[in-house]
Simulated assay, not measured.
Amino acid sequence: MVKAGIIGGSGYTGGELIRILLQHPQTAIDFVYSTTKAGKKVSTAHADLMGVTDIAFTGKSNPEVDVVFLCLGHGNSSKFLQENRFSKNTKIIDLSNDFRLKKDSVFEHKEFVYGLPELNKTKITKANYVANPGCFATAIQLALLPLAAAKLLANDVHVNAVTGSTGAGVSLSATSHFSWRNNNVSWYKPFTHQHLGEINESLKSLQTDSGTLHFLPNRGNFTRGIFATAYTAFEGGLNEAVDLYQSFYANAPFTQISQEPIHLKQVVNTNQCHIHLYKHEETLLVTSAIDNLLKGASGQAVQNMNLMFGMNESLGLLLKAGVF
């Protein structure tokens, strides 16, 4: 059994990790670390775990665990690793943006591999340290990587994507408060979102002359999920595009190419990414949908753990959506 530790277990991503790992057949949770809730049962923060587990939060970490997941706010993972040491055999999976970019990937002699399995599976299987991708970054990259790999992304790309309120984290803010968010939609960080850096690095790794990515993120009046639409010039036919995507994702168990238009409920509560292609004149429309807390965070982190320990990539992650 792989002994796992979770740092920052009281937030949304920590709660989802606990839920997944409790059902994982080859993993045991060694500790769930929280400075604010030490000594309290995890179910006090995650009511969906009441009756499922009696694990309590702790204010101490075990440096000898096999793998540790860092579910901390952006900028806090590097600080935590400076103040807390783990065994040289402990694998680390960071869910923040501290180590995603190439310029930040080496930290105290630790080299973090960018953890998008559909792009870096071979590197992940050999890695000791993985930087889990961002949620928007996951949805957008999976929508565009096949085009970049085929050197067909030379023109500008326009992306519009909407995310649920859980994407803002568990702490309340003016734009995550129910009274503001309910029956409301708004954009934020237009063309400057922090996930653009990692998206562009991945695309440029496949096609150096890829076009400019124009990204407009939106806040939706729902709790979880990301629904993204991307369009760009494409000279080929629709069947050619479908074949291209099916071939690129032939060995990706969680990325599906749908023949029918997709909707968000298909992927919520799963580690799946569903993609649909539509051709209008000389423009290709690519739609992708993921659960921001699973394929966009905790589910993908477990997927990376499976690869790092030589386990089946899908182990513990065959989750079903609730469409109705």
Rank of each mutant, 00 (worst) to 15 (best):
P133M: 07
F136I: 03
T287P: 09
I140C: 09
S43D: 08
S202R: 13
L294E: 00
A148Y: 07
K126I: 05
K102Y: 02
Y33T: 05
L172C: 11
A161W: 13
T138K: 04
S34H: 15
Q259R: 11
L147Q: 07
V113M: 03
V170C: 07
M308I: 10
C135M: 12
M308G: 10
T223A: 07
K265T: 10
M311W: 12
L264S: 08
H263V: 08
S43H: 08
F57C: 12
L315C: 07
A47Q: 15
A137L: 02
K88P: 00
S288G: 08
V52P: 13
A233V: 14
S205C: 11
H276S: 01
D94I: 00
L216G: 06
F86A: 06
I226Y: 05
K40T: 15
G299I: 02
N200R: 11
N182L: 13
R181K: 06
A4C: 15
S105G: 08
F69S: 01
T36C: 04
V130Y: 07
P261A: 11
F31A: 08
G15R: 01
F254I: 13
S77F: 13
H158V: 10
V157M: 10
D209G: 05
A127G: 04
L21E: 14
L172R: 15
S186N: 08
L101Q: 10
P63E: 10
E201H: 14
V68D: 05
F324Q: 14
G169T: 11
T125E: 06
L216T: 14
Q207P: 04
E240I: 02
D54R: 03
Y12R: 03
F222M: 02
A241E: 10
S171C: 09
K91S: 10
I140S: 09
Y245T: 15
H195K: 05
N89H: 12
S202W: 10
G134W: 01
S179K: 03
L213E: 08
I124N: 03
V267M: 06
D48P: 05
L294D: 00
R224C: 05
F234M: 10
Q26T: 08
T44F: 14
K320F: 09
Y33P: 04
P261E: 12
L294I: 05
Q82E: 10
N251F: 05
G237N: 07
L293S: 08
L119H: 12
L116I: 00
L142T: 12
A252P: 08
A149W: 13
K37M: 15
A252K: 09
I226V: 09
A47T: 14
A131Y: 02
H158I: 06
T175M: 07
K41S: 14
A250S: 14
E16I: 13
S96F: 00
Q82H: 07
K37H: 15
C273D: 09
N84C: 03
V52D: 08
N128V: 05
S105M: 01
E235H: 10
N128P: 14
L49Y: 08
F248C: 07
H46S: 02
N269C: 12
M311Y: 13
V267I: 04
S78E: 07
T27R: 03
